[in-house]
Design a protein around this nucleic acid. Sequence first.
DNA 1: AATGCACAAGCAACCGGTTGCTGATTAGTT
DNA 2: AACTAATCAGCAACCGGTTGCTTGTGCATT
Lengths: 344, 344
Amino acid sequence: MKSGIPSLNDVAEKAGVSKSTVSRVLNNRLGNGFSVKEEVRLRVIEVARNLNYRPNLIAKSLTMRSTQMIHIFGGNHALSDLGNIYQTVVNNITGVMDSTSKDYDVTVDMSRHASEASEMPAWKIEGAIILAKCTASTMKDILQLGIPYVVANGQCPENGTSVNPDDVGGTRIAMQHLLDLGHTKIAYSGPLPPYLEGHSSLSDRHDTYLSEIGKNGLEPIFSSHETLDSAEEYLKETVLEKKVTAILAYGHMGALNLLQAAHSLGISVPEQLSIICFCDKYANRVMSPGLTFIDLNAEAMGKTAAELLLAQIQNPGQIKPEKVRLPEALVIRNSTAAPNNSSE
Amino acid sequence: MKSGIPSLNDVAEKAGVSKSTVSRVLNNRLGNGFSVKEEVRLRVIEVARNLNYRPNLIAKSLTMRSTQMIHIFGGNHALSDLGNIYQTVVNNITGVMDSTSKDYDVTVDMSRHASEASEMPAWKIEGAIILAKCTASTMKDILQLGIPYVVANGQCPENGTSVNPDDVGGTRIAMQHLLDLGHTKIAYSGPLPPYLEGHSSLSDRHDTYLSEIGKNGLEPIFSSHETLDSAEEYLKETVLEKKVTAILAYGHMGALNLLQAAHSLGISVPEQLSIICFCDKYANRVMSPGLTFIDLNAEAMGKTAAELLLAQIQNPGQIKPEKVRLPEALVIRNSTAAPNNSSE
DNA sequence: AATGCACAAGCAACCGGTTGCTGATTAGTT
DNA sequence: AACTAATCAGCAACCGGTTGCTTGTGCATT
């Protein structure tokens, strides 16, 4: 017990048996040419408990090549913004993992890693879930080590499994909602191309907006002003000048800013201006009750990712990779309505 | 090369030297009774690169007895609610850990554990941060193993280190703000005693409200209605019946509900009703811009916790435990104002 | 030529477990 | 009593690295 932490050897000595006996007793590896007297078995277990013995997982992984750990990559970037969907995703992943009989331990890596470094932990992991993205080096390791993995809300290699919301479909639904209400001057608010780097939702939402606008013979409307930085300027240009009556916002943060700016400018929502955005229903409930939104269904994303991962772990090599697209859904609250033509 | 992954031995064989030489060369452990000819050194490095050798971190941690891992306990309960302070706390912890030269790896345990079970991971951890609380069993393990730790926003053992916001001071500041504005009918909204179990902030805020009310010769005002469930009922009882002009709310969720309910009931904020609550400034910015609040300073909490932990890790046994109280600060937004006496 | 010493590199133990196999008891059978 | 089979437990190798110490070599010194 040199380091203060009891080892297998310490238990063995105290119990007056050999390392191997302790190992087999504690792991219940009876049979196969091995057995113990009940008396010895109980003594070993008793000693182990008294010493508060805990197997060193690192040593164990070295020989066993197996832990019961599920590792979530990308926590640092994914969980750094308040109120994004990843917290819901993670909660639902752990929910599924905790409810399965095997007791998997879920950890989230929260460290910021150099962009070329591998984020792989020192211990063996049974499976990985990648939030949005991981470094190329990490992905290389995952593939090389053959670790089952699922990418949640992000792109993944050809032969990998991922779960993503259907942003194209969601954008169509949002646009249809606004069109059905009678809007014709619909602006888009969100990051515009060229995107330096980023998530497919950036282009999916933007491009689908454009194509839907075109399909209906309307004019696309943008603004050079950033919603996140200068929402008031954005509204002045779009609503006051260009007579926009509805805005499709990339995210709820932008939408909230627009809402506030509208309030300051005396533009009433939804009477004079409809706002719709993409958001998770949990984040929406907590952060912006009232906003009409397209639900990204982070809950299902987490659950599905966890289930797909479990399937891979429990049937090694038998599960074929899958790119799941989860449908998005319109949730109508109070920020959209028919355009108010009388104000003309 | 049995598993397809090259090992130290494979490199040694190919380079025609011993394991130890390869190890020392690759880790640059020269001196101390060891040296190599430059020619051999280069050959080893060359072979290692050709084989794409990567040291097995598991084996490495076994001998090195160091994992460079910082573990955060309590992620499951602390991070399950959207928009609470813990996400900010965790982000600032990792920020500090990442900016130190040692590259610590931070993981957050997100698993749900049985209340009597130990949450201690099986691998060695260099330090621990506990979000609000951990199981008794976990704390026992931490103490027994002598792992440096800091409790963030929660109680900790006699000889431990913790970082907590000064809720008593914060409540005084909030009350003083309302009193300065001229309010005399100030209600408290939040969990009332007896608390089944819970955080010290519950009693700190409630009790300090009471004592400040008493100190100023005012009447404490409560309602049997829960703000979170039935904010409208709460307002009817306090504002409409009891003529309350200001409410001190335990949390921003309750405050938001009150805000919405006030809107529905036609009670204007802040003209007819002032609302102030406890909240972190990040959560406030994102979730409820406009609310006047007492900033819990989750940012400083995370940073301080991380710094205190690092100090302990880097100077083993030399740092004396500390109970840090971080001051809370008033941030005035638009939900508080002088009471409108003309409405009487 | 003998001695001393710095330099090079390897041996072998160790980290904390797991596991195939072997040896020693005990029990059961004839 | 002798023999076989079942039971019980330990030896030692191994996982993939790290490191204290020893050995072997070549060169300068006396």
